[in-house]
Amino acid sequence: METTKKSEKELLLEFEEKINGEQKIEPLDWMPEEYRQHLIRQISQHAHSEVIGMQPEGNWITRAPSLKSKKVLLAKIQDEGGHGLYLYSAAETLGVTRDQFIQWLHEGKSKYASVFNYAALTWADMGAIGWLVDGAAITNQVSLQRTSYGPYSRAMVRICKEESFHQRQGYKIMQNMMEGTKDQQEMAQDALNRWWWPALMMFGPHDGDSPRTNLAMKWKIKRETNDQLREKFINKTIPQAELIGLKVPDSNLELLTDGTYKHSDINWDEFWQVVNGNGPCNQQRLAHHIKVHNDGAWVRESAMLTSLIEE
């Protein structure tokens, strides 16, 4: 008993040395159970977010106003599905299957990004989502490229390239609309008004209210805190809005001498409401996923059977 305990300690020491030496942890390496659990939670949540995120945008493909915009949107949503695939694969290296992750999602045990619980109401939302939601996602993901878990880090490198493309495409939609008719300009401004705060909420609670941040930072799963990332996003996004004539919906904005912005705080009551299932589309998004999954069960069962026969 004494010796095993000691070796566990040694293993932990070795593990932490690796992390401090900026070496990646790989699936077969020893890792503390808390580290594994943190990753399982975070990566699967990330995978679910990519997949649930297909819904608000998928809602507009058939109404895209030009064939080019239809192709761009469809390809973007396809990318997000692909991100979901990479991330489920990365998460599966931790010993949990995709089926299990999906079951946890359906049981409410596993979450996804709250931002997708807001409704995509107009075509301008396709711009705002790409620009702000993908923009916020990249800010976080660029930092996650250096995360300590190898498979997660590699998935992030692939994903980041596509996300920055999405961000530019989304911004381009907004720009086109701001150069367009009065109706289009109003539509774009309205979309920014509705998506600005949800995008800022994507970075999560203040550092002081984020209980798992310390360990995640210590083990370099996270490399920057929620608040640091949020400030980065705010500072780079406000000038983009102003450049095309959009007004960020925050009456307390003030450009400081160091180039950063003073701004209002998030409505944390709304934040927790949405996290806890009471956002505008929480039920709709989950019900959609569950229905599709159930509707497709016969196809999966049958495909499994034929692949067994063919083997």
């Binding site: 997949v51 297909m54 819904q55 998928g58 493909i61 469809l74 949503i77 396809q78 599905g81 692909g82 979901g84 695939l85 489920y88 959609h288 599709v292 509707d295 497709g296 069960a297 196809v299 999966r300 495909a303």
Partner: peptide, 11 residues
């Protein structure tokens, strides 16, 4: 889109 029996098939 987002309604296929599994993700690979959606893509």
């Amino acid at each position: 889109c987002s309604r296929a029996p599994f993700l690979e098939e959606d893509l």
